[in-house]
Design a protein around this nucleic acid. Sequence first.
DNA 1: GTCTATATAATGATAGAC
DNA 2: GTCTATCATTATATAGAC
Lengths: 193, 193
Amino acid sequence: MNNRQRIIETSLSLFNERGTSAVSTNHIADAAGISPGNLYYHFSNKMEIIRTLFERLFAAWDEVFQLPVKRAPSMTDLEKMITANYQIIWQYRFVYREQAALLRQDTELQARYLEVRQRGYEGFAALIEAYVTAGVLSPPADDKELATLTELCWIVSEQWPINLELRGRAFDADGIMEGTNLMRWVLRPLFKE
Amino acid sequence: MNNRQRIIETSLSLFNERGTSAVSTNHIADAAGISPGNLYYHFSNKMEIIRTLFERLFAAWDEVFQLPVKRAPSMTDLEKMITANYQIIWQYRFVYREQAALLRQDTELQARYLEVRQRGYEGFAALIEAYVTAGVLSPPADDKELATLTELCWIVSEQWPINLELRGRAFDADGIMEGTNLMRWVLRPLFKE
DNA sequence: GTCTATATAATGATAGAC
DNA sequence: GTCTATCATTATATAGAC
């Protein structure tokens, strides 16, 4: 692994551990085993490191929220998507703990966030529609209802791991299962009997 | 208004504007029109100011999530609770933008948070039960279902204003109405036809 | 690419006079 | 209670040698 990569990995680990504002460029360089000067050769400041980590998160999102498969989707696909999303959130948990504060400081980054979020949103909406087409879920009353449902799923899935943390609970198999159940509740109005 | 109070009000306003880590005790003293030394007479450090603001937030929560009235509750009571909660979140929006990060730094504060959150949670659950008793909502299948529902409402209501912000949308009458509609969707499985 | 050394500024916090 | 003055520490960032 080259030093640029080492800086990125070390930063992610320190940010997740202590939060972005408690971690200085000196801390990062130190933990990465390089000099502060060297760090500034690779990145012009701390925010550029943070932005790089956001981009990695965005790439991970794009992979998870793709419209899957040609075949008719089963409920297992949905569960896989939810679980994969939880894993990503946990991997980049510092982002989810601070995202509103971080994006407010950087309007360009916020624009990128909105763009990628929109794609994820559309991918998830397409999945719901595929379920409706396949006859697994009942059709929503109208587009407005579909949008509300998608938004709700988004908020819950995005907040669930952090919510567990706020309550002092571990993000373990139990916690993931609970989160998946919560998502089932959200979708229940579309379940067929 | 005395200086202690002025420090608190000024801090809230600066934290909401720029975030806790971008605001120093010097900034606060400056904006409050007092000396840094004076600030340290009233508070021993920045975290103590943040803790004081959390306590004010907790007090506001306790008021909103009380079990209301002796009379049978109408759906208007629920809407009032939701709207009042949104107002509080907006007033202390810096907390909601950073809460996971802030509580991780201060285990005592996290314990307080859990305690107050639990009371709010119970107050909300009691309201749902009151609706069921009054025949406004259908009874949930069991306690587990009630707990899931309460948790879901909590997450959504807590995250809605910040969610609007993340999407670059204003927290105006429209946004509040959308949030209320979202809550209606969550409760829909209990609605009677 | 990487290091050491250093400039510059800001931060949290205290001492001591009034 | 409030101020001025000041300290020790840390942060970001750059210059220049290798």
